[in-house]
C-alpha cells in the first residue's frame, strides 16, 4: 500500500516534507547494506574472542580478590552468552515460523 502524501490522518498538518526528487540515501545502495552486515559479523566475532579474554581476566582478578565466581557452571563455558543469544534467536524464529502454520488465519478471521 502506498499512501498519497497529501492524504493523512490530520489534514491540516500532513503535507509531504520532501519533494518528489529526494536525494538517494546511503542505505539505499545494496553494497552499503552488505557493508553493515559484514561489519556486524566482524563486531560479533571480535566480541566473542576479545570478550572471552576480558571475561577470563576479570574472573581471574575477582578470584584473586576472594570473590565467588559464577552462580552456574555453564556461564563460564567459552562463548556461552554469544552462542545462547544466537542459537536461541534462530530457534525462536524457526519455531515461530512453524507456529504460523498452526495459528495463522485471515486478517478478518473474527469477523470484525
Amino acid at each position: 500500500m502506498t499512501v498519497d502524501p497529501t492524504d493523512s490522518t490530520d489534514p491540516n498538518d500532513s503535507t509531504a516534507s520532501t519533494d518528489q526528487r529526494e536525494p538517494p540515501r546511503w542505505l539505499d545502495a545494496f553494497e552499503n547494506v552488505r557493508k553493515v552486515y559484514q561489519w556486524l559479523w566482524a563486531v560479533c566475532l571480535l566480541l566473542l574472542v576479545g570478550g572471552e579474554g576480558l571475561l577470563r581476566w576479570a574472573h581471574h582478578r575477582s578470584q584473586q580478590a576472594g570473590d565467588t565466581h559464577h552462580a552456574f557452571a555453564f556461564e563460564s563455558w567459552p562463548g556461552f552468552y554469544a552462542l545462547f543469544g544466537f542459537i536461541g534467536s534462530v530457534g525462536l524464529v524457526l519455531a515461530a515460523k512453524e507456529l504460523r502454520k498452526l495459528l495463522m488465519r485471515a486478517e478478518d478471521y473474527y469477523g470484525d
Binding site: 559479523w41 570478550g51 571475561l55 552462542l83 543469544g85 534467536s89 534462530v90 524464529v93
Partner: peptide
C-alpha cells in the same frame, strides 16, 4: 561484556 555478547549475537541471528 556478557550482555553485549548476548544481544549482538541475537542481532546477528536476525
Amino acid at each position: 561484556v556478557t550482555q553485549l555478547q548476548l544481544l549482538l549475537w541475537a542481532a546477528l541471528a536476525f
